[in-house]
Amino acid sequence: MTGNIHSVSIGELVVSKSPQGVLVAYGLGSCVAVCMYDAAGGVAGMLHALLPSASNSRDSGNMAKFVDKGVPLLLEKMKASGALKSRMEVYMCGGAQMLTAPGFNNTLNIGARNVAAAEAALKDLGLRLRVRDTGGNSGRTVKLRVSTGKITVRTLGQGEKPLN
């Protein structure tokens, strides 16, 4: 995939209208990437969140690291760039369980909790998830092309595959 790569690092959200732009979250493990796309507006956005919820936080700084805060922030930023909620396509990738050894399963199932938090946040906003590639035990690189809204997901075992 060619174009101007905008790397979306952990705890970041990026919205782009650049037709050449490609938003990329590299090596997602338990993190989730939530993608929003408005074809008519030519606006694409991606959130790369680490933790499900800000509820126990004293932090007033970077809210995009939390799924529950980051999803509404992404929608706001999309709308500020001219996207319409009614036209929004929403996708989600990531939320893998990286630790599969016995003894780690219960305490560290952050991937599944991130996915659940994103589902809840999207439902609250009245947004429907179109396609997802979540869970499992493998890391993913997610690319979203601004000009077309096409998303690909790459894993080490499977290579790069289209999501939509």
Partner: peptide, 12 residues
């Protein structure tokens, strides 16, 4: 796995 995905575990 991918280095990023592995480091997610300690980051999270």
């Amino acid at each position: 796995d991918m280095a990023g995905a592995i480091v997610d575990v300690v980051a999270a």
